[in-house]
């Protein structure tokens, strides 16, 4: 039953997408195949699915945990950027030093910075009752401007002719590659580990229970002796840390340096991914794969069918709308009772 909704949504997107492509004068069936099927047929595209899916999955898993508890971190993009900055700066600080400790140090710095960035809205919510949606969103802009200031200032490549970018990280500050000749890096394993750990935490651990309880019945959770402050802090720190880690991975992996264009919106897309995955780690994994697929396939369609980039984002927008909209059917079919609806109401709140 849970499968019917998403499958129907994808089917509808394909139908409407084919209409769109036909209107644009492109072969509709061929275009759909390029987007949804071709990326799966060769090694390179498959490896790129990992590259694109890794940050989405890492961030979305963390966000999903928080969303379950009604902690609305929508500033993952900022935490991602700060993670990239901290991880990258750590790597650049020891430029040209070999050592297997360099990468772990960078990851630690990135995750810690991301977590710290996320703790700002957490603390402001606990201490001053400030809405974390808004604070975390504001901090995205601050982070973006900070990155831009750093790569045009202190972190700029001294031999780079004033171009706004850092040095290229040296080898020991670059992520090991999983599959030789591709860009798929060990971050993918970290994402997978995050999914498994989150799954266990959610289903088997008390932490997961406290999250769900706070999301569904905050008052009951307080009676049960859980401290809200703790849940908020922990949720924000975990999601921020994972976003920061994803940022470091991105800088030390596919990009290999700090550039102003490093953030491409993974932090925002991951919010959508978290909901598409119904706030479940397994679902998040599938949703990130699907999103990655449309990105890679979309580029293929641009290249082979000469579709404008704009048509691809319209197509992606349609897919998201259908997926988000289809949720309603499974929700109503699965949850006929009033009590359950009410619980959902709080569980799915934004």
């Amino acid at each position: 039953m849970t499968w019917a909704g998403p499958l129907l949504a994808v089917a509808l997107t394909m139908i409407f997408g084919m209409i769109l492509f036909a209107v644009l004068g492109k072969d509709p069936v061929r275009t759909i195949l390029i987007i949804f099927w071709e990326p799966l047929t060769n090694d390179f595209s498959r490896s790129e699915l990992l590259v694109k899916g890794t940050p989405l999955c890492l961030i979305a898993v963390g966000l999903a945990l928080g969303f379950r508890a009604g902690v609305w971190n929508i500033g993952a993009e900022g935490q991602f950027i700060v993670g990239a900055i901290a991880g990258g700066a750590a790597g650049l600080a020891v430029y040209d030093t070999a050592g297997i400790w360099v990468l772990p140090m960078m990851c630690l710095a990135g995750a810690a910075a991301g977590a710290a960035w996320a703790l700002i809205p957490a603390i402001l919510r606990i201490r001053f009752n400030a809405n974390e949606i808004l604070v975390s969103l504001m901090l995205v802009y601050v982070a973006g401007l900070w990155l831009s200031a750093l790569v045009t200032g202190p972190l700029r490549d001294p031999d780079g002719f004033n171009f706004p970018e850092s040095r290229i990280f040296h080898d020991s500050a670059t992520l090991p590659i999983l599959i030789e000749g591709t860009r798929a890096h060990v971050g993918a394993l970290a994402a997978l580990a995050a999914v498994v750990l989150a799954w266990i935490a959610l289903e088997r651990h008390e932490y997961g229970f406290s999250l769900k309880l706070f999301g569904q019945a905050p008052r009951a959770a307080r009676f049960a002796g859980y401290r809200e402050a703790r849940v908020v802090m922990l949720s924000m720190a975990v999601s921020g840390g994972l976003a920061g880690l994803a940022g470091t991975f991105e800088a030390a992996g596919p990009v290999g340096q700090l550039v102003p264009a490093l953030p491409v919106g993974y932090g925002f897309t991951a919010i959508i991914v978290a909901f598409l995955g119904r706030l479940h780690p397994g679902g998040v994994l599938l949703a990130s794969a699907l999103m990655a697929l449309t990105y890679i396939g979309g580029e293929g369609a641009q290249l082979e069918m000469r579709l404008p980039a704009a048509a691809i984002s319209v197509f992606q927008g349609m897919l998201l709308f259908f997926l988000l909209g289809m949720d309603v059917f499974s929700r109503y079919r699965l949850a006929p009772s009033k009590a359950r609806l009410a619980r959902r109401a709080q569980g799915g709140a934004a």
Binding site: I272, G325, A350
Partner: peptide, 19 residues
Amino acid sequence: LMSNQVATGLALTLFGLGL
């Protein structure tokens, strides 16, 4: 359809820019 507001709003931005 009661979809999530945050996710829907973000999707709207993506869709609008493309459209």
